[in-house]
Design a protein around this nucleic acid. Sequence first.
DNA 1: AATGTGACTTGCACTATGCAAGTAATCTAC
DNA 2: GTAGATTACTTGCATAGTGCAAGTCACATT
Lengths: 125, 125
Amino acid sequence: MSLEIFGDRWSLLVVRDLMFGGRRTFKEFLDSGEKIATNVLAERLQRLEANGIIERRRDADDARKVNYALTKKGITLAPVLVEMIIWGARHEETAAPPEIIRRMVADRDGVVAEIRDQWKKDRSL
Amino acid sequence: MSLEIFGDRWSLLVVRDLMFGGRRTFKEFLDSGEKIATNVLAERLQRLEANGIIERRRDADDARKVNYALTKKGITLAPVLVEMIIWGARHEETAAPPEIIRRMVADRDGVVAEIRDQWKKDRSL
DNA sequence: AATGTGACTTGCACTATGCAAGTAATCTAC
DNA sequence: GTAGATTACTTGCATAGTGCAAGTCACATT
């Protein structure tokens, strides 16, 4: 069940923010609401990369920046993430479930397919 | 996404062993292959109970024993677990995927429904 | 040239985990 | 009915992991 890879407090949050939250850079992950420490974030990004879930890309326009992206393997986590998000929305009181969550509940497979297509496009550039 | 509840190495394994592995007692969880420490298992069981995922039941026949069971809330984790197990089976080389995993892949919703019914029966006794 | 930014590292206190051993309440067998 | 297992935990302690503040270093901006 691969809990060696993401059996911790942060790894799946990083993947979620990458997959659904539009975050790409170290700084963007840091500002993701939950307060992950910089050293922990750095270590998680390395581990996710070592496990083939995400990949590092130096930014073409700004040499300081690094953009993270989902790998093919990472993209296949979409169904897992969707189920966890739905579960969390049902059982935690995180205010009213926002639009995307209602779409997940109504059309789980559609949302997963959309995510897959979006990232497939990214990977073919 | 509730990673405060099961964002660690062991909590989801306990739920999985309860849901799909037929484990019910402390000792059975201990002998589940992965080597969780007794103190950690005790703490995880308490936390899962505190979060309403599982419940403790003293055994009617043997006063030494405690049987753990999934609550309604715990049962709703089935889709999450199924997706994680499928993902793990695809991406880790855990020998040949056993029968249950092939059934999960072929008929995800059927397996989830089966688990739900099985536990619903348990809960109505 | 001076200041700012982005992506990390480093140091250190604190917390969680792993391991071995111990305990208390049953059961079971003789 | 008592000695020896069983079950479900606790406790103590060394080690590993985490959180926080500060620092580094390669660019970028002004």
